[in-house]
């Protein structure tokens, strides 16, 4: 749908289609230029810039991805209740429409910026850049970016964040990692949410969900949590605190922390394929 109606044109990337290369006319022959650059180079450049912002202010940025309705906002509400007194948390909310999620987060006493994407199906680095300048990064420890509910597109766009957390609710089916491999391969942690419903959903097996994740060669921790009963929240909060610690250690060593799986850059594949003859 997005490919024909043009709804993927987001406020962040609109300028890309408005650029028309100004070319000077000079006589000459055909030229073939070897490039080997990532197709989302402009987004990646902006993402790198965002990461610089986060690192300058020592803010761990966590990208939350899942299908719509799997409990991302509920996870954040309970997380804020549990550790909001200990850490300064900020939230960027991505949705097609409404301020609803940002209002739920603000009700917990935490700053939240809502990005409404119109009809775009993902956040990109330009949109996040616009939002992060509305936040007082100096006074934050952790920034959660709640991506648009979608198991496809958000996985392809680096936002400049440090960790990907993918949620899979027990009402969705334990084969989701096999059906959406690009998304789940990118997860640095997988949360099985709404775990309080497991006793009444006998067709969802956590072991199957974990096996499907491992089949993607992903060693990420799998945690069963319920934002309602706080079941499994110790594991989730411990993971978060360890990541925060590890992030600060990276910064102290002058290293960049990035999600474990990033799209392969040209360095990796520059010599992998012979170019077709002209």
């Amino acid at each position: 749908m997005c490919d024909t109606c043009g709804c993927n044109v987001t406020p962040g990337n609109r300028r890309l289609i408005e650029i028309k290369g100004r070319l000077s006319v000079t006589p000459g022959d055909r030229m073939a230029i070897d490039v080997l650059q990532d197709l989302l180079r402009e987004n990646d450049r902006q993402a790198w810039h965002n990461r610089e912002h986060f690192d300058r202010h020592q803010v761990l940025a966590v990208n939350l991805m899942s299908s719509p309705g799997s409990g991302k906002t509920a996870l954040l509400e309970t997380t804020i209740e549990a550790i909001g007194h200990e850490f300064n948390i900020g939230v960027i909310e991505g949705d097609l429409e409404t301020e609803n999620d940002a209002q739920r987060i603000r009700a917990k006493g935490v700053p939240a910026i809502q990005i409404t994407t119109g009809s775009a199906c993902h956040l990109d680095a330009h949109m996040v850049h616009g939002a992060l300048h509305q936040l007082d990064l100096e006074n934050l420890d952790i920034l959660f970016i709640e991506n648009v509910g979608n198991l496809v597109c958000p996985a392809s766009f680096d936002l400049g964040h440090h960790r990907n957390v993918t949620l899979l609710s027990v009402t969705e089916g334990d084969d989701k990692p096999a059906k959406y491999p690009v998304m789940f391969r990118a997860a640095d942690a997988m949360l099985i949410t709404k775990a309080d419903l497991l006793p009444v959903l006998d067709d969802f097996k956590c072991a199957n969900a974990e096996r499907n994740l491992r089949n993607l060669a992903n060693p990420a921790p799998v945690m069963e949590v319920s934002a309602k009963t706080r079941q499994g929240f110790n594991d989730w909060l411990t993971w978060l605190q360890r990541e925060l610690q590890s992030y600060h250690q990276h910064l102290a060593r002058g290293e960049k922390l990035c999600p474990k799986i990033q799209r392969e850059g040209h360095d990796l594949h520059a010599s992998a394929q012979a170019s077709p003859a002209l």
Binding site: R30, A32, L39, E264, H266
Partner: peptide
């Protein structure tokens, strides 16, 4: 991979 490998250009 998701790479721009090569472009072929025509000057005139």
């Amino acid at each position: 991979e998701m790479l721009l490998e090569r472009v072929e250009l025509l000057a005139e």
